[in-house]
Design a protein around this nucleic acid. Sequence first.
DNA 1: TTCTTTGTGTAAAATTTTAACACATTTGTT
DNA 2: AACAAATGTGTTAAAATTTTACACAAAGAA
Lengths: 252, 252
Amino acid sequence: MRKDRIEEIAELLDKRGKLTLNQLDTYFPDVSQMTLRRDLLQLEQAGRIIRVRGGAMSVKEVQKVSNEPYAKKTALHTDEKIRIAQKAASLIEENCSLFIDGGTTAMCLAKELPDINIHVFTNGLAVAIELAQKKNLNVTMLGGQVMKENLSTASPVAKSYFENTNFELAIISASAFTPENGFSCGSMVEADLLKMARRKAKAMYMMLDSSKIGKIMPHTFARLDDIDVLITDDEFPADLKEQFLERDIVVM
Amino acid sequence: MRKDRIEEIAELLDKRGKLTLNQLDTYFPDVSQMTLRRDLLQLEQAGRIIRVRGGAMSVKEVQKVSNEPYAKKTALHTDEKIRIAQKAASLIEENCSLFIDGGTTAMCLAKELPDINIHVFTNGLAVAIELAQKKNLNVTMLGGQVMKENLSTASPVAKSYFENTNFELAIISASAFTPENGFSCGSMVEADLLKMARRKAKAMYMMLDSSKIGKIMPHTFARLDDIDVLITDDEFPADLKEQFLERDIVVM
DNA sequence: TTCTTTGTGTAAAATTTTAACACATTTGTT
DNA sequence: AACAAATGTGTTAAAATTTTACACAAAGAA
C-alpha cells in the first residue's frame, strides 16, 4: 500500500534525519527508485520533508540544524550511532528504570527505545521531548542549568534530585575515550552528574562510537572498571576490545 | 571580497526564501556559477542554508514550511497570546531573574523575551530549548516527571530545587480562571509547583487570555490576591477588570 | 622575493532528476 | 459484470545539476 510506504518513509526520515535515494532503495527493495521519488515528492508537497540532491531530509532535522549549537555541523545521525542505539535499545526490558544522558547518541537511543512501560531519567531536553512522545514510557527530566551547546542540564543542584530517585541502569554516551583517561566530557558539572548516575545505577552501559576513541576531553567521568557493557560499532579496535574483555566487560 | 558576497547571498536567501543557482547568477554576474556553488557549500556547512537541487533555501524558509501544516493546530488564540507575551516581555529588565511556566503562552513569551542578561527558571521543556537559543540569557530547567500533554515537568521532587534557587518574578499563564475559583490548572503537582513559585517570587504576573475566563480546572494554584499584575487582551471584560483594580492589581 | 594558501574559472565526468510512455491495479459508475 | 477513469508503477532516454580535476591568479607569510 502506498500510503503505508509513504508513512514509513516519513518515520524513517524522522529517525535518520537524512536519507539518500539509494539508502531508501535498500529499505524498500520491492519498488523502483522512481516510485520512491514520487513518494518523496508527495511528502515534500505535504511539507513534511525537504528534498535535497540525492534524497531528502526531515523538516525536524532541518530545524535542528538551524538551532546549530546543538546539531553541530552536518553531524547528522550516522549509521553507526543508530546501530549502536539499536543495540542498546535491544537490551532494555519492560518495567525497568534507566538513566540516559543528553548527547546525540542518547538522542538516537531515545528514538529507538520501544514504547513500553519503562521509566527513563534524562538530563537532555531534546531527549526528554522525544521520549514524551511515547505513550507507555515514563520520563523524568533532571533539572539544572541548561547548557546551550548540547541542550542538557547539569548543576550541583541536580544532586538533590538523585537522592530520591532510583534506577537500575545508566546508559551513557561518551564523547571521548582513551584507555588511560577513561571516558571524558567537556563539562565539569556534567561529569559530576554522570559520576553520580554511575553510583546510583546497578549497572552502566557505555555507548561509544569508534570515532571517539583516542580523544580526550577535560573531565573524566568513568573509567574502564566502572562500566558493565560497552556498546560500540564494528570499527572498534580488537586490541582495545581485549582490554575490556579482560575486565569482564561485555562488548557488543 | 568573498566574505561579503557570501554574506550577501545569505541575506538574499533570507529574504527570498529560496533561490536557484541561475537566479543567483543573475545577481552576481561577475563570478562563475562554480564560485557561487562553493559559496553555497560553505553556507551550508555553517548551517545557515540548506542546499536543494537547483539552488538553496534559507533555514527560516524551511521552518516556515514545516510550521504551515502544524500551525493550524496550535493556532488557537495565537494572536492574542503573542500580544500578551509581548506585553509581558516589555516588563522584563536586565539582570533580573524570573520564573516562567511551560504552557503555550509561556512559549510565546520565551520567543518574545529579549536576549539580555537575565536568568530564567522554567518547567517547560520546549520553553527551555527556546530560551537556550539566546546567548546572553541564562536558563535553568526545573526537573521532575515530564507531563506529556504539555511537555512540562512537575513533581514533588521539584520542591528541593526551589530551596536553593531565587527569583524575583514569576510570570505564569493560567489555563482557567473564575473570580470564585481563582487561577486553576489540570494537574495537582503542577499546581503545587506554581504555588511554590508564587511563594518564592517577590511578585507574580499572570498572563491570561480572555478565552480562559469562566473555565474551571481541578486545581487552583493562585487567587486574585496572589497576583500583582494581570496581563491580558482587549476582550477582557470590564466588570472583571474592576475586581482586579479594587485589589490594586495592575491590569494591562 | 619565494613559497604557500586561498579563491577562482573551465570543461569533462559523474550523478541525479525529470519526462514520456506503457502497463497494471484500483475505484467508481452504470 | 462491464466499463471507464483514476491512480500507481516500472523502464527507458533525455535533461539538468553537481562534482571533480586541473590550471591559474591573487593574497599572505616566511
